[in-house]
Amino acid sequence: MKLSPDETVFWQHGFITINLTIVTTWILMLLLAVASWVITRKLKKGIHISRWQSMLEIIIITIKNQIKEIGLNKPEEYIGFIGTLFLFIAVANLCIIFPWYQPPTGSLSTTVALAICVFMAVPFFGIEKSGVLGYLKSYLQPTFIMLPFNLISEISRTIALAVRLFGNIMSGGMIVAILLTITPFIFPIVMNALGLLTGMVQAYIFSILATVYIAAAVQESG
């Protein structure tokens, strides 16, 4: 039994491996990009808009408001990163309703990659906001003694992000797989529905935590 889609390899040449995780990610990327393009291609700027546009606007305004609620005053600057995190994880998790689909978020490599992105984004936005020195000073807050702890927290929370998402999604898939062998009919459907909920919650948690970290970096340095 394969625990991760990483293990399904389509093509390998030395270090380069094209596995199910990467392929699924590409498909999702294509889906998101094409859907966005199709919908925003005919954007209407008047009062009357299409239903698809309305749906997208609701999603984006909700994300924007969430970012603002957490404390980032200019959500337009961060929506590209945080919004994409949320949309990618949410779509990846929602697609479990399709048969034989294995979410890329169930692969530790993907979650680690996303965690690394957050890990890199925090100093990026911090430095962008208040310069390198300003950002680095935030590690000495409230006193320089706190520097090691700050560093540890920075690394540990990144690992926690990666493992939390991976564990939740992977376990959901595992439970369904195991239940299928025991009670193959109705029960897996219930678990799958639960999996959808878990997936949405995880997408929300991941992006909110990323926002909190970025907000903390931006506000501390500011």
């Binding site: 997208l56 994409t84 490599s109």
Partner: peptide, 29 residues
């Protein structure tokens, strides 16, 4: 952890960020 996959996913994610910024957030906002 497949480190190639990790790198690929990071790149994929950054591309997706750019794509969505280009096709979704900017026009909608």
């Amino acid at each position: 952890i497949n480190w190639f996959t990790v790198i690929a996913q990071v790149i994929n994610f950054l591309i997706l960020v750019w794509l969505l910024k280009r096709f979704l957030y900017k026009p909608i906002l």
